[in-house]
Simulated assay, not measured.
Amino acid sequence: MIIATTIQEVTDQINAWKAEGLTIGLCPTMGYLHEGHASLMDASVKRNDRTVASVFVNPIQFGPKEDLATYPRDFDHDCQLLEAHGVDMVFHPEPSEMYFDDFCTYVDMDVLSKTLCGKTRPIHFRGVCTVITKLLHIVRPDRIFFGQKDAQQLAIIRRMVRDLNFDVEVVGCPIVREADGLAKSSRNTYLSPEERKAAVILSRTIRLGQEICAGGERNAAALLEKMKENLASEPLADVEYVEVVDGLNMQPVEQFKEGDLVAMAVRIGSTRLIDNFTVGDPMIQVR
């Protein structure tokens, strides 16, 4: 596996692969990889001749009071996982490689970035769109892979690619969960043993929401009331939001349909966790 730390190294290798007519998949990550990330690599390896993963903790998507400095990092472990899952090249740049000292050009989006996580993380999606735009220009992939756990991010990238005419296919991959249902996340490592037990309230509430939808409920207020009641049963859960939004534009809806998104952000202790389901998707398996 090639380990590249500079943009020039990546573009030289991409040019060589493209000269051979090879297809390229890109899996952007911030590292501290787990089985959820591995599922993206597996999907890319299956559908492309070559797979590139980025491991880059993107500073411009973190707010001033967020966890940039403490975000977990273990590049040696990341490389072992990437190589085991067939990744051909990992791009691991320093922030100075991605952003000049006087960097002042950003990719921003209206509407989709204003709801859900965008309400409390106002600069987050500007940072995401900017770094993904740069990676798309650097790697020039045929396909780019994202997890459904970050459903708003996935919707935003799909819209950005459409609006700005990027020649790339955006592939969404299912949420990967622990045996008890908790969605895999690098931030799960922040949880104490007590908090880890409490955190399963998210996936159990997701399962409850799915059961209510499967029973025919389509009124958002009725669904959210029951889901919030369930979250309130866990003393350590501090709910930031539980919302039902249109699956394409991320705007709240009163009556929902298949393809719409039910999403939540909940703090367990100081750790912010997210989870979601798409109405009509198969139910998650939660013990």
Rank of each mutant, 00 (worst) to 15 (best):
F145N: 10
I2Q: 11
V245Y: 03
D42Y: 05
T130Y: 04
D49R: 04
A151F: 05
V171T: 10
D150A: 12
E254A: 06
G181P: 07
T120G: 06
P93C: 01
M160E: 08
L191C: 06
K149Q: 11
A4L: 07
P59F: 05
K184I: 08
T70M: 02
E97Q: 08
I138L: 06
L224H: 07
D12W: 04
Y71I: 09
S113N: 10
D163M: 03
E195C: 04
V176E: 07
V87P: 03
P252V: 09
R177S: 07
L208K: 15
L164S: 02
L81V: 13
M98F: 06
E94M: 10
R140I: 10
M109P: 15
I24F: 11
S44I: 06
N230L: 05
I60H: 00
A263I: 11
T120P: 00
E9K: 08
Y71K: 15
L273W: 01
V242A: 05
A220F: 01
L164T: 08
H77W: 10
L136C: 09
D67G: 08
S39L: 03
I2N: 14
T11G: 12
I138F: 05
R159G: 11
G63L: 13
D163I: 10
I14C: 12
L81I: 15
A53Q: 00
C79S: 10
S192P: 01
I206Q: 14
P95S: 13
D49M: 03
M160F: 00
G31Y: 13
L81N: 07
F146Q: 15
S203N: 09
V168M: 00
D12Y: 04
A198K: 01
D260C: 09
K197T: 13
I60E: 01
R272P: 08
E194D: 15
R47G: 04
V245W: 00
M264I: 01
A4I: 07
R187S: 09
N165M: 02
Q8V: 12
M227C: 14
Q13W: 04
G63V: 12
E243N: 10
V239K: 00
F125E: 02
L236S: 12
N230I: 01
M109R: 06
P59V: 14
G181E: 04
D102L: 15
I284W: 00
D74I: 12
F145V: 13
Q153E: 13
I7C: 07
A221L: 08
H92D: 00
F125Q: 02
L261I: 15
I157T: 02
L82Y: 05
S192L: 02
T5E: 14
V131P: 00
L248P: 00
F100A: 15
K226F: 01
S96E: 11
T130L: 03
E178M: 06
E195P: 05
A151R: 09
R287C: 14
A84C: 13
N48K: 04
E243I: 08
Q285V: 11
G25E: 06
A69S: 11
L223M: 08
C27L: 06
V244C: 04
A199N: 06
G86I: 05
D76P: 14
G36Y: 02
G31L: 14
E240M: 02
L22R: 15
E83T: 11
M98P: 14
E9H: 12
